[in-house]
């Protein structure tokens, strides 16, 4: 059996073909270029928006952030109402979505229900994130806004002395927009909180239960604190999403640039302002919109970077 092995035995190892070496080197470089390209896109977005915003930045400076007129006729632009609207709508959405999301995550990570049922329910909650924003919008217009009518009227009539309910319910406004935002960020909070809870070592729970803690004592005293940073990371991600969410909010918030403390009144967010005015804007208005977009970019960037840092720190311990 010494037939076919006469080959190059003992002969010096020759250089690899130019083509093979070249393809290796160029392929590696190509992938490296693409990878750095992805990071560059992030920077590029910021730079491009900043450049386009320049005329407005020069003209209005930082005052843009604290003035509240938005008047294309006089070229008077201020972003205070939309920044306020962005922050308030996101804040209300978080206020509602955090307890519901964490509660759901707890319910679906503990063994209250058989495992297959939990899997299906978790999948259904994740599906909330898959529904396109514009579909939430059309649903909000035709279903949620009419449904909230009686509630809004009641709130205004009975609790109207509270500034939050100080105006009559007109339909589109902060309340329906914030409620839909709640639904849209709920799956993010639930998914990440559930992941953090599930990835806790089982020994942790056993230790707590072994010391005579009841299930919910263990959850409140041991499990939630242990999963805390993961949950906070998820909440931050949800906040970033809420601030940038556009379509559903645009269709429901009423797009009023008047600053109003009442959640029953129409309002506006940075993203909605862009969605509404961009396509029909003149030169300086475009620049002002870009400026507002830059503010939104900055806000979401900070929130997302914080969120990523928290989530990454959690992953280190996994």
């Amino acid at each position: 059996m010494t037939s076919s092995t006469s080959g190059p035995k003992g002969k010096p190892i020759e250089a690899r073909s130019q083509r093979s070496q070249w393809s290796d080197r160029s392929f590696t470089w190509l992938t490296r270029l693409m990878a750095f390209g992805v990071a560059a896109v992030l920077v590029f977005i910021g730079v491009q928006v900043a450049i386009d915003a320049m005329p407005a930045i020069r003209r209005y400076g930082l005052e843009f952030l604290v003035t509240s007129s938005w008047n294309p006729v006089d070229d008077a632009y201020g972003a205070l109402p939309v920044i306020y609207g962005t922050l308030v709508s996101s804040f209300i959405a978080l206020l509602l979505a955090v307890p519901i999301g964490v509660g759901t995550a707890l319910f679906l990570s503990e063994d209250f229900l058989p495992r297959p049922v939990r899997t299906v329910l978790s999948f259904m909650v994740e599906m909330l994130a898959a529904i396109p924003s514009v579909v939430y919008g059309i649903w909000g217009i035709f279903v949620l806004i009419p449904f909230l009518g009686p509630i809004g009227d009641w709130l205004h009539q009975n609790l109207g002395w509270i500034p939050l309910f100080g105006t009559a319910y007109l339909g589109p406004g902060m309340l329906p927009a914030a409620l839909v935002l709640t639904v849209m960020i709920l799956p993010i909070i639930t998914a990440i909180a559930r992941d953090s809870l599930i990835s806790l070592p089982p020994a942790l729970r056993q230790a707590a239960l072994g010391m005579g803690a009841t299930r919910w004592t263990a959850i409140f005293r041991v499990l939630i604190p242990a999963a805390f940073s993961g949950i906070v990371g998820g909440i931050m991600l949800a906040l970033g999403r809420a601030m940038g969410e556009t379509m559903a909010v645009t269709m429901l918030i009423g797009n009023s640039n008047d600053l109003n403390i009442s959640i029953l009144a129409p309002a506006n967010t940075v993203a909605s302002l862009l969605a509404n005015q961009f396509a029909e804007a003149g030169d300086l208005q475009i620049a002002a919109l870009m400026y507002a977009g830059l503010v939104l970019f900055g806000l979401t960037l900070v929130v997302n970077i914080l969120a990523e840092m928290i989530v990454q720190r959690v992953n280190v311990y996994k």
């Binding site: 990878a35 990071a39 491009q48 928006v49 969605a275 970019f297």
Partner: peptide
Amino acid sequence: VPRWIRFATNVLSGVPSILMGVFIYGL
């Protein structure tokens, strides 16, 4: 290097989609 690029990728996925539109509008 990959850690930073992954980080940037995740941050990029959090950039509001309307800003992708603004970006491409300018570009």
